[in-house]
């Protein structure tokens, strides 16, 4: 396969970036998208040019690092992570545009790499449960209905990739935050911090400068883990009931 790549190149957070075009003729259908970029980077290095910086880690669809916006969609044409996307999803001779995630809260570090520590700060603000000391509890001591356990597990599969923010016309992080809120709100272990969790996480989300949800559902359609917008509705319920009934509110966000 031969393809043309239009890639966003940006020296660092403070420089202005621009697209650069590359003709890439050593592409096989069986390569993953990231392998295709590896081959291109090898060629660039051999030519004495600087390689294209992009994020990746596990390359098996579980770490959420591979944040590329490909032809107008996060992670490209399939609802998966970029590392699980293969060149057979593209046509011979196609022009492929690769951009970084675009969000004020995800500043570009270099080329296609963005800083997603805003997500970490939201997590730190409330995405935890208190762990009690004492004797080891019996397994299955706390009864949880199967359906509820499944719901919580589904929410917990969010890998924090940020595709929801990238896909959203408002760069809203509500799918991510709602997944993290739901995962604990559904389970008995999450009850002690239930109200303050949602208040703090939403406050931190707003502080980071993410947008508001218009319910376009683009996030759900692009999320590699299929997180449902039903979680956003749950987060809204949790938030409205928490803020109208909680005793102590320290909703300034706990992150830095």
């Amino acid at each position: 396969m031969k393809i043309t790549l239009k890639v966003w190149r940006q020296k660092d957070a403070n420089s202005k970036g621009a697209f650069k075009t590359y003709e890439h003729s050593h592409v096989s259908q069986d390569m993953s998208f990231l392998e295709m970029l590896d081959v291109l980077n090898n060629e660039l290095v051999q030519k004495g040019e600087e390689s294209i910086a992009f994020d990746h880690d596990c390359r098996e669809g579980i770490c959420g690092m591979c944040s590329l916006y490909i032809n107008g969609r996060p992670h490209g044409p399939l609802q998966t992570t970029t590392c699980q996307l293969h060149m057979r999803s593209f046509k011979d001779g196609e022009t492929i545009t690769i951009e970084p995630w675009r969000a004020k809260a995800f500043p570009v570090v270099k080329d296609l790499v963005v800083d997603r520590s805003a997500f970490d700060r939201i997590q730190r603000a409330g995405g935890y449960v208190s762990v009690n000391t004492g004797g080891v509890p019996d397994a299955n001591e706390i009864a949880i209905p199967k359906k509820i356990a499944d719901e919580a597990f589904d929410a917990a599969t969010c890998i924090g990739c940020g595709a929801c923010v990238a896909a959203c016309k408002n760069a809203s992080a509500m799918l991510f935050v709602s997944a993290k809120v739901s995962q604990f709100a559904l389970l008995p272990q999450g009850q002690p911090e239930r109200k303050e969790r949602v208040e703090k996480m939403v406050a931190q989300m707003d502080d980071e400068g993410f947008g508001a949800c218009t319910n376009t559902k683009a996030c759900e359609a692009e999320c590699p883990k299929g997180i449902s917008v039903a979680n956003i509705a749950r987060m809204n319920r949790e938030y409205f009931s928490a803020i109208t009934s909680s005793y102590e509110v320290m909703a300034k966000g706990g992150g830095d």
Binding site: T97, K104, A171, G209, G211
Partner: peptide
Amino acid sequence: KNRQARGTDRYAVTSGKSSI
């Protein structure tokens, strides 16, 4: 606010496939 949340550099290519 939602426009600001996108940041100063906007996407060059967008797709309408994932929402109405």
